[in-house]
Amino acid sequence: MADNEFGYTAWARDFVRLAEPLRVTKPEPLLPRARSIARNHGVRTELEGTVVRAHIHRGTEASVTHLEFTPLPRPTVEALSAIVPADTLTLSDELHAAVGAAGISVAPILAGTDCSCRARNARCLHMLATCYAVVALIDENPWLALDLQGYRAATPETDSDVPVTVSRWTPIDALDPVTYFG
Rank of each mutant, 00 (worst) to 15 (best):
S63I: 03
E61M: 10
H57A: 11
N121W: 07
D114T: 08
T45C: 15
S92E: 01
A79L: 10
R118G: 08
P75T: 07
S63G: 05
R39G: 10
R44Q: 13
G103P: 03
L89H: 12
V52N: 00
R17G: 05
R35H: 09
G103C: 06
A136I: 00
L137P: 01
L18H: 04
Y132G: 02
D14P: 00
V51T: 14
S105G: 10
P29Q: 13
L30G: 03
A62N: 03
G49F: 09
G49L: 10
D14G: 12
P21I: 04
A54I: 03
V84Y: 01
A111N: 08
K26W: 04
L110Y: 10
E94H: 03
R74F: 04
T60G: 05
I56C: 00
T45G: 00
R17I: 02
A119V: 07
S81T: 11
I56V: 15
S81A: 13
L47Q: 10
L144T: 07
R17F: 01
P108W: 05
E46V: 13
A136Y: 02
V106E: 04
I109L: 13
R23C: 02
L95F: 04
V135A: 03
G42V: 14
L91K: 01
A122R: 11
L30M: 06
L89S: 09
R35M: 15
I56W: 02
M127N: 13
E46L: 15
V134Q: 00
T50M: 11
V16Y: 04
H55F: 08
R118L: 15
E140W: 13
L47M: 13
G49Q: 12
T50P: 07
A79V: 07
E94G: 05
P142F: 00
G49M: 07
E61L: 15
P142T: 08
G49W: 07
T90F: 05
A133V: 03
A111H: 15
E94N: 03
V52D: 00
T65N: 13
A119C: 12
V16N: 03
G100K: 06
N121K: 08
F69L: 13
G112I: 11
R123Q: 10
G100Y: 01
G59S: 11
G42P: 06
G103L: 06
D139L: 04
E68C: 11
E61S: 15
G42S: 10
T130F: 07
S105C: 15
V77G: 03
L67P: 00
M127P: 01
A97F: 04
C115I: 08
A119M: 08
D87E: 14
E78D: 09
C131N: 14
S36F: 07
T130V: 12
V77L: 09
L146F: 11
R74L: 12
L72I: 07
R58T: 05
V84S: 02
V77H: 04
R23V: 04
